[in-house]
Design a binder for these strands. Structure first.
Lengths: 198, 198
DNA sequence: CTAAGTACCGACCGACCGGTCGGTTTTTCG
DNA sequence: CGAAAAACCGACCGGTCGGTCGGTACTTAG
């Protein structure tokens, strides 16, 4: 069917574009570069997408979709709050480090380029994730300290601290380094649950 | 003296450029924009700097200078490792949040644009900072646990975790928000020293 | 005053960018 | 087969970018 090949083409373009955007940056990657990498002319590329902005938006939107399906949804129904948090840390790291999901890195890094209307849609989805994490933090703290109405660390600060730890990984991670996913996940989990002396 | 006004001009240009780069992004800011903000023509601007790359490099280099002088140097001679780490966290946050030091944010965000030779010089200074922090982490862990040869959290993972927490702040921080420097510093310190349940 | 050097202007350049469009090939389907 | 639709090409456009350059105003020192 024509419909399916069209969708496939779009997704293949998005994957290639995401790869290039991640490697060279959004601004430094021209539509010609994207087209050439797909063995397409620029005109052919514009048959599938209206603008470069549209491609970036679709990449970021897809990144949020991935986050929803590979992190939030699998975690949602875990009853114990601490286990839920543990699972979220693990899944979030796995998504960030997955070479297949370069969209995440692009979304994390490219803030400016999107026109305001599209950027707001992405930002609102990001905020949803922050709130989800914030509630999870509050719940986990409640389980650990059921009596104290308020700990020293607010759920919001904890959420941003964790997001920073996780979303910064792409800045320093090298697959050939000695600090890989298998070491990283338990260590970052330990830090969140008990600090660097745990 | 002519020499001093020249230096002043360069620094004023760098400050203005840093502000614009931070607000609109490096690629989205043209040399015309920078010149106009300084009430200069583009030709006049090129009298002081050879290229846009040179400006970005100087901004980033200055950012590393600031880190050296406002974080590393004040911390260096603190005898107690834990106190040294506490001070580093506080100073690093203060630098990242200081509206005067926009260079830091530019340096944190703009990775791609610099030509390889200049980028390597910045990266090596960044690595120095990571190593400094890594050693500090190892020392602090040693003080806390003098007997165990190795804790669950490696100094390297701890260093990257902390850097992530701190360097990600610029992505979400709003001066008008309820989470400001005065709340942030003790909370992030608590998380590093004892996790989110501390 | 004068001459040299600094600071600066503004017109200009070639390159490249995102995007367009008329036409051609390829695929799909009755 | 044949026609419609989808995919694709490549030349082209207006605009902007980083950067240049010849000339001018201003400052400074002798």
């Amino acid at each position: 069917m024509a419909r399916e090949t069209l969708v496939d083409s779009r997704q293949e373009i998005l994957r290639t574009a995401a790869r290039l955007f991640q490697q060279r940056g959004y601004d430094a990657t021209s539509m010609n570069d994207v087209a050439a990498a797909l063995k397409l002319s620029k005109g052919g590329l514009y048959h599938h997408f209206q603008s470069k902005d549209e491609i970036l938006f679709e990449i970021m939107d897809h990144a949020m979709e991935i986050t929803q399906e590979r992190v939030i949804n699998p975690v949602r129904d875990i009853a114990d709050a601490e286990e839920r948090l543990r699972a979220l840390i693990r899944l979030h790291i796995e998504v960030v480090l997955s070479p297949r999901d370069r969209e995440i890195t692009v979304m994390l890094h490219e803030n400016h380029p999107l026109p305001p209307a599209l950027r707001k849609r992405i930002n609102s989805r990001k905020k949803e994730y922050v709130h989800f994490l914030e509630n999870l933090m509050a719940e986990a703290q409640k389980v650990r300290h059921p009596h104290s109405t308020k700990g020293k660390v607010s759920p919001r600060a904890a959420a941003f601290a964790l997001l920073g730890m996780l979303n910064w990984i792409y800045q320093w991670y090298k697959p050939e380094g000695d600090l890989q996913a298998q070491n990283l996940i338990p260590q970052f989990t330990e830090i969140i649950f008990g600090g660097i002396f745990a």
